[in-house]
Amino acid sequence: MSPSDKTVESEYENVNEMVQPKVVFRNVSKTFKKKNEDLCVLQDVDLDVAPGEFVCLLGPSGCGKSTLLNIAGGFEQTDTGSITIDGQEITEPSDRRVFVFQEYGIFPWASVWDNVCLGLRKLPKEEQKRVAQETIDLVGLKGFEKAYPMELSGGMKQRVEVARALAVKPDVIFMDEPFGALDSLTRLTMRSELIRIWKQEKPTILFVTHDVDESIQLADRVVVLTERPGRIARVVDVDLPHPRDLASPEYARIKGELYELLGVRDWG
């Protein structure tokens, strides 16, 4: 491809980005081979995620939502169908799409600073310093640059992991129940912090959770998955401005709808 072709194509892509979805799931199915039986965890999942959109995947435990995320992250393969980001099919992990894990994927042997710099290795020193400091400030960890993860609380560790992901300015951030191990108060703080950061940086976020409230508080759209094999039961729009009023009638209506889709009746 000549340099001129490349310019034309990238311009063409930029024009299209306005209308084209960022992440596209097409007929995604996955079966795990077990000793006695085949375990079908995902069946014909179709989903389009727009650039800068915050989408929650909500479903009961074992419905395959984490598997879906792992496939999108390039850690596992689909059996049929495909997942594309900007039209490129995903075959392996890349720092263009970064995972935030529930069980603390940051490195306990490295300081906060070194953890955040993990994805910035190829930048010039000055640039690396600037981006790392900016990102650390953004997630509210100023002053903790030299601390080691074991000296930090669970919430702060997740801030480090979010910073590590944001630092590389990825196309997509995948979050697999990132706040699942935190206490409920810290979880609330982390949600509003995540929304603040998301509004500022506008990354595309795919967020897996089994917490109905969490999904309504965070997402533009909630994708409800059925029990195994996971299929999309419904995509629910959450058309509420941030910060969201948890006492509003619309909030309660969406909550009722989600619980009904999950088959829970007496939720109060």
Partner: peptide
């Protein structure tokens, strides 16, 4: 998770 983090960041 640490292996996957390493893979994720190339």
């Amino acid at each position: 998770v640490h292996q996957r983090s390493a893979l994720n960041f190339g």
